[in-house]
Simulated assay, not measured.
Amino acid sequence: MATPDPARWRLTESGRRRARLWITGLASAGQLGAALLLSRAGSGQIWEPLLGGVLCAVACALVASSRIPWRWVDIGLLVAATLSVGGQLLTHDTGAPLPPSVQFAGVFLFLTGFIVLPVGWGALYAGGVLAVYSAVLLRSGDLTALWQLGLAGLLSAYLSAFGRTISAERAEAEAFERLALTDPLTGLDNRRAMMARLQKAAHTGQPVTALLLDIDRFKGINDRLGHDVGDEVLREVGRRLRAAVGTHGAVARWGGEEFLVLLDGAASAQATGQALRQAVRAAPMAGGVTVTVSLGGAALREVGTVGELLKLADARLYVAKSSGRDRAELSVPQLHEVQIQTLA
């Protein structure tokens, strides 16, 4: 059985924005619909759902604008909800019990305050909300509601602290996962990450091409100029390869002075190979050295497995280097010739 991929269930930035758009949009529609039904029923208590619907509609419009950070939208909603509930508490008849909707609003403010605000400010905000509610409930003599609201506040604080702990642990796990899949010198994908991409492409039948590149005479750079210059050359080659590939593929440091580029089906291997070689030798790098690369490429459609794909690309890289370096080889040898050489 295949192992579930946790990344599959993580929302991307655009996914989170769409989720919030749906939530605020549905909340606005529900509130405005309730106000309409109350109006048709002849009820005079339509201003609460009407105000809530308008606030949610404004929030939906703000979330749709990528220029406004979500945090400011959340804080703005919290301020608006606080003012709304505060107005209801100020206009409440002294001695009369609080309506259930207003009591529920207090629980909502507790939860929202702990979620939106940092821990310290969230606790301070929750304390202020509890103090105001306590004053109102003590005047009405509703000690049961006061106890229940205080319990809700404690539960909100606990859930917030628990949720923040889980979020921190998840962020730490994701950071370790990124480190495990990233080459520490160049910041590119490492061999493990690229192998995962290759296996996924082979499993799904994507028409990809692998280009295996090797920096020509890299050992001489290390010997003459030192490993610090050699490391900077590796970083700069990685940057130039990534810029040249763009959105048409992925780049990984395969090992040592070798890089592997995985191109999607829309990219031309011949044109991309030429662009990669030109990008690398376009300008001198650290130490004033001009660097060239040789590359060998193979398409997944030429082979049956990822292992054969890599073996064929490596064989063609060897041909490119033995034919004078600073060149690309995408057709010679064929897979059956490599297999015969291996058997021999």
Score class of each variant (00 low, 15 high):
residue 314 D to H: 02
residue 303 V to K: 01
residue 311 K to I: 08
residue 312 L to R: 00
residue 258 E to Q: 12
residue 313 A to Q: 03
residue 263 L to M: 11
residue 295 L to E: 08
residue 266 A to R: 15
residue 308 E to D: 07
residue 252 A to N: 11
residue 316 R to H: 03
residue 279 A to E: 07
residue 297 G to K: 04
residue 292 T to P: 02
residue 282 A to V: 12
residue 309 L to G: 05
residue 308 E to M: 01
residue 295 L to C: 14
residue 320 A to Q: 06
residue 320 A to L: 05
residue 290 T to W: 13
residue 251 V to E: 10
residue 282 A to F: 14
residue 325 R to M: 09
residue 319 V to N: 04
residue 274 Q to K: 13
residue 317 L to E: 01
residue 257 E to M: 07
residue 306 V to E: 11
residue 318 Y to F: 13
residue 266 A to L: 13
residue 272 T to M: 15
residue 290 T to P: 09
residue 251 V to I: 12
residue 292 T to V: 10
residue 286 A to Q: 06
residue 306 V to A: 08
residue 309 L to R: 03
residue 258 E to C: 10
residue 262 L to C: 08
residue 314 D to L: 00
residue 256 G to N: 10
residue 258 E to I: 04
residue 275 A to V: 10
residue 258 E to A: 13
residue 261 V to T: 06
residue 298 A to H: 03
residue 327 R to I: 06
residue 316 R to P: 01
residue 294 S to K: 05
residue 266 A to T: 15
residue 281 R to I: 15
residue 297 G to V: 02
residue 276 L to G: 02
residue 320 A to E: 08
residue 323 S to A: 15
residue 281 R to K: 14
residue 293 V to P: 00
residue 272 T to E: 04
residue 302 E to K: 01
residue 256 G to A: 12
residue 285 M to E: 05
residue 290 T to Y: 09
residue 257 E to I: 04
residue 255 G to S: 13
residue 263 L to F: 11
residue 287 G to V: 06
residue 297 G to A: 04
residue 267 A to E: 08
residue 290 T to M: 13
residue 286 A to P: 08
residue 283 A to E: 15
residue 266 A to H: 14
residue 258 E to K: 09
residue 316 R to K: 03
residue 296 G to K: 00
residue 291 V to Y: 08
residue 312 L to K: 00
residue 326 D to Y: 07
residue 313 A to E: 02
residue 269 A to T: 13
residue 275 A to S: 15
residue 274 Q to V: 14
residue 294 S to Y: 02
residue 258 E to L: 10
residue 299 A to R: 10
residue 261 V to E: 02
residue 253 R to Q: 12
residue 272 T to V: 11
residue 323 S to G: 15
residue 302 E to R: 00
residue 296 G to R: 00
residue 264 D to K: 04
residue 313 A to T: 01
residue 277 R to V: 06
residue 297 G to S: 05
residue 265 G to H: 12
residue 301 R to I: 03
residue 270 Q to G: 14
residue 271 A to H: 15
residue 296 G to F: 02
residue 310 L to D: 03
residue 260 L to W: 04
residue 271 A to I: 14
residue 327 R to T: 12
residue 279 A to S: 13
residue 273 G to I: 02
residue 252 A to F: 11
residue 316 R to S: 00
residue 304 G to L: 03
residue 282 A to E: 14
residue 285 M to R: 03
residue 319 V to F: 03
residue 280 V to E: 02
residue 252 A to W: 11
residue 310 L to P: 00
residue 318 Y to A: 02
residue 294 S to T: 08
residue 284 P to G: 11
residue 318 Y to S: 03
residue 318 Y to C: 05
residue 274 Q to F: 10
residue 303 V to M: 02
residue 274 Q to A: 12
residue 277 R to P: 01
residue 310 L to C: 08
residue 289 V to K: 09
residue 265 G to I: 06
residue 253 R to A: 03
residue 310 L to Q: 03
residue 306 V to R: 06
residue 322 S to H: 15
residue 324 G to Q: 12
residue 323 S to P: 10
residue 253 R to L: 10
residue 276 L to I: 01
residue 271 A to N: 15
residue 307 G to N: 14
residue 296 G to V: 05
residue 283 A to T: 13
residue 265 G to A: 10
residue 310 L to N: 01
residue 315 A to Q: 02
residue 309 L to F: 05
residue 284 P to C: 10
residue 305 T to K: 05
residue 300 L to V: 09
residue 287 G to F: 07
residue 324 G to T: 09
residue 289 V to S: 08
residue 271 A to F: 15
residue 287 G to P: 05
residue 263 L to D: 07
residue 299 A to I: 00
residue 292 T to A: 11
residue 293 V to I: 14
residue 278 Q to A: 14
residue 262 L to I: 12
